[in-house]
Amino acid sequence: MNGTVTWWQGVGGGLQLLSRQVLGISGLIIVVTILLTALFGDFLAPADPLALSIRDKFLPPSFAHPFGTDFLGRDVFSRVVSGSRIAMTAAVVAVSLSAGIGLVLGMLAGMGPRWLDYSLLLLFDTLRSFPVVMFALAVVTLVGPSLETIIFVVVVISIPLFGRAVRTQTLALKSSEFIHAEIAMGASLGRLMAVHLLPNVLGPIMILAAMEVPVVITTEAGLSFLGFGVRPPAPSWGNILNDGFIYVRNSPWPLLFGGLPIILTTLGFTFLGEALRDILDPRLRKEE
């Protein structure tokens, strides 16, 4: 066992490093809290997020309604809690899809022939040249607004990010001795990618994934806010903001509390992503 590290030693060391970073820890706490809220929101929400009570509209924060009520008398706190599930679903699905596709394309670009590398790079550059919201609005017009549409848009836009990072990493690894040895021993391209390259590109992928979650959440909330995302009355954070925006002169509370979870979540994932970067790959700090 000389020189090797068992997994629990690895995890222990990682936690120790992470704890040196106050921001990393607070990021982790925020992320865990939001994930738990998304999973168990139904038990946490004091009221039905869709239940109307017109008589109680525009109430300021109180004990019964910590975040106040909106223009239909719905409990904003329950809606925010319930909205975390929509945001997290979009984030998890979109980030894993784009990371997965970007991973494969990036490794292919790095390992494959030159023409494939160039074509994929050109594809990445093209996909990145659309301003996100404009592109999203065009897609929404075509296929109609829904959570699936938003996830599709974010996946398309995010693939280049993962693809490029994986390609760079693959190119660097390609010339290393252990890969040469594997090729000399007759390893197939599939084996090279799955067994030898994958573990080495997972670190950067995880960092990027954490950093990409805010992008997904912001896009979902933004499009829902415009009325082209998750359909109302579903309590997406963007929908809460839109209701709050329209009735801002009646009550500022829904707008105020609708924005908070978005800021908190983006902050949490950004802190966590940066802490991960410091732990997993100090070299990446320079490339910023």
Binding site: P214, T218, G222, L241, R249, L255, I263
Partner: peptide
């Protein structure tokens, strides 16, 4: 980091709330 984490539309809405409406 806090500035980066705030999406422009949330900044816009908060700015509207604070500086324009209130």
């Amino acid at each position: 980091v806090a500035f980066i984490a705030m999406p422009p539309f949330v900044v816009g809405l908060y700015a509207l709330l604070l500086f324009a409406v209130t």
